[in-house]
């Protein structure tokens, strides 16, 4: 038992150090200017998921858990992904969002009017 625990303590310490380093990366990455906005967001989220994995797998012992637990949590993961991607579908108008969005000053942001601008090019 004691040897087993000593091994666990080492793992926990390394995970702790890994989390601190990745926190540094997260903050550092936010100062990098990416031409494509999604690249910065993807990098930030990738580091967050890496940190999340370290915590869930080690501190929460999910790397060595009963299969019953994995089945239960799989349902959560599926619904979480649905929640996560629902707004993206909405934004791409796959769910038919309203075209007219009111701005703060009372004007209307019209999503479909941009097509008119092409008329100026000959």
């Amino acid at each position: 038992m004691s040897n087993d625990m000593n091994h666990h303590i080492k793992v926990y310490r390394n995970v702790f150090l890994g989390l601190l380093v990745l926190t540094g990366f997260t903050v550092g990455a936010s100062y990098i200017h990416f031409d494509a906005l999604w690249l910065g967001v993807a990098l930030g989220l990738a580091i967050a998921f890496a940190k999340g994995y370290l915590v869930a797998a080690n501190f929460m012992h999910l790397n060595n858990e009963k299969s019953f637990m994995y089945l239960t949590l799989a349902i959560s993961v599926v619904f979480f992904l649905v929640l996560f991607f629902m707004p993206t579908l909405w934004h791409n108008d796959l769910l038919k969002s309203p075209k007219h969005i009111p701005l703060q000053n009372g004007e209307v942001y019209n999503d479909i009017d941009h097509s008119d601008n092409h008329g100026g090019h000959h």
């Binding site: 349902i75 996560f84 707004p87 942001y109």
Partner: peptide, 22 residues
Amino acid sequence: ASEVMLFGGLFSAYIMLRLSDP
């Protein structure tokens, strides 16, 4: 698991607002 849904819903609202608020 229920907490994941609670925070997940709010995260979803955040993404939604951010993508659609000019």
